[in-house]
Amino acid sequence: MTPEQDQLRAGVRKLLEREPEPWTALCAQIGVAALTVPERFGGLATDTESGAGITEVQIVAEELGRVLADVPFLGSAVLTTTALLTTRDDSACERLLPQLAEGAVGALAWTGVDGRWDPEQPAVRAQGATLDGSAHYVLDAAEATVLLVAAATADGPALFEVDPAHPGVERTAVAAMDETRHLATVTLDRAPARPLGPVDLSRVRDVACAVLAAEQAGAAARALELTVDYTLRREQFGRPIGSFQALKHRMADLHVLVETARSAAYAAPESPRLAAVAKVHCGEALATVAAEMIQLHGGIAVTWEHPAHRYFKRAHATGQLFGPPQQHLARVHP
């Protein structure tokens, strides 16, 4: 990492430590929502083609994952902004990206109830300038003021903007396993929409997987830190359980798993295949570390008083986000 990237990480971590509801401060003081927005549209990114260096975005995601932050970064600053940029519609970007860069919440409606996030088959269909259908697992849709919809057209997937307040647009929040990840179903009934142009959903999915992988790596690292700390304090037979050789071996294996997850996450932007690798490996790494966290903490880990159950829920919820592991394994080994 460069000194500037280290400073970004330190700044995000310090802010998360002092702010119980950090989204406004993250946007105003650090500009996390502007990282993916090119400078000409009011953001911080110098790459006008694809937004900020993806590494900076992943650094933020890794720090957010460490504390399971309840913020709309992944759904708004990553999914929505990336989808909008792939349309190459400058007028839409000039109108919407400055809002998103300042912290307005955006949402991208895409997948069906099967949760496959298929780039070729959006759940919603377009009939001219109206949309019909239901998109599921829409991140931060209930709070979004900018609502974009990936819809199937005769010429392939295209991106549309809809008014969240229109009577033909219904947003229904769904109860999720992970209470820090806000999902909703967006139902469109002949909803009028503004076409923004063809959208590269394959590109959007790969960016989302790379950022999610960094978030999972951050969560896994913190879960392991908490577990190691507990085993150094919890005593059995007159000494800390962390001194037992069997537990030392288990935690050493987890350390290797966490480090390989970080490596996979930061390599993910290099190619679609590596994005798929990161999606699978980082998801499995977090699930494994979270399960070991439960085991090594014992009964306290499944109570509301302890954060272990939150890491466990995040692990299993993110494992299915942007498509189940077997779908991405098929991309690695076609």
Rank of each mutant, 00 (worst) to 15 (best):
A308F: 03
V12P: 09
V124L: 04
A308H: 04
I300N: 01
A315P: 06
D70S: 13
A69F: 07
A184K: 05
V186G: 10
G112L: 04
V199Q: 11
G197R: 04
P272L: 06
G197H: 03
T55V: 15
A193T: 12
G299D: 14
R116F: 12
P119H: 08
L74R: 01
R9W: 10
A217N: 08
A25G: 03
L139R: 01
L85R: 11
A210W: 00
G156D: 08
S91P: 00
E259L: 07
A330D: 13
L84A: 10
A208L: 11
K313W: 10
L232G: 08
E63G: 11
G53Y: 02
A92T: 06
T36R: 15
A144E: 03
L224N: 03
T172N: 13
W23S: 09
A69E: 06
T86H: 05
C282L: 08
P119D: 06
T231D: 07
R331N: 04
V332R: 01
V37Q: 02
A33F: 07
T55D: 15
I294Q: 12
Q121F: 10
L257W: 08
L201S: 12
E143D: 15
Q121H: 12
T130I: 14
E225W: 07
V78N: 08
E235P: 05
T231N: 06
A223H: 02
V32E: 05
Y137A: 09
E120T: 10
E225D: 15
T288F: 06
L257F: 09
D229L: 10
G43E: 00
E62K: 14
R234K: 13
L147F: 06
E62D: 13
A129V: 13
A150C: 04
A25L: 01
M177F: 07
Q99G: 13
L212N: 11
T82H: 00
F41W: 15
A154T: 10
V71Y: 04
R171F: 03
H249W: 11
M177A: 10
S76K: 04
Q127L: 09
T180E: 09
A246P: 00
P272R: 03
H182F: 12
G299V: 13
V211R: 09
D140W: 13
H249C: 07
K248N: 10
T231C: 14
A291G: 08
A123M: 02
L44E: 01
S263L: 14
A33H: 08
M1R: 09
A104S: 14
G299C: 05
G42I: 03
R310K: 07
A220E: 08
H328W: 13
P22S: 03
A52G: 15
A219G: 09
T48Y: 11
L329Y: 08
V124W: 02
L321A: 09
R310D: 11
E270K: 14
V146I: 13
D155P: 01
A104Q: 12
A107M: 04
A141T: 09
A104G: 06
V228G: 14
D155M: 05
G238F: 02
D132T: 13
T111W: 09
A34V: 00
G106C: 05
E270T: 15
A220M: 06
R66M: 11
G103L: 05
K279P: 01
L8Q: 02
V289S: 02
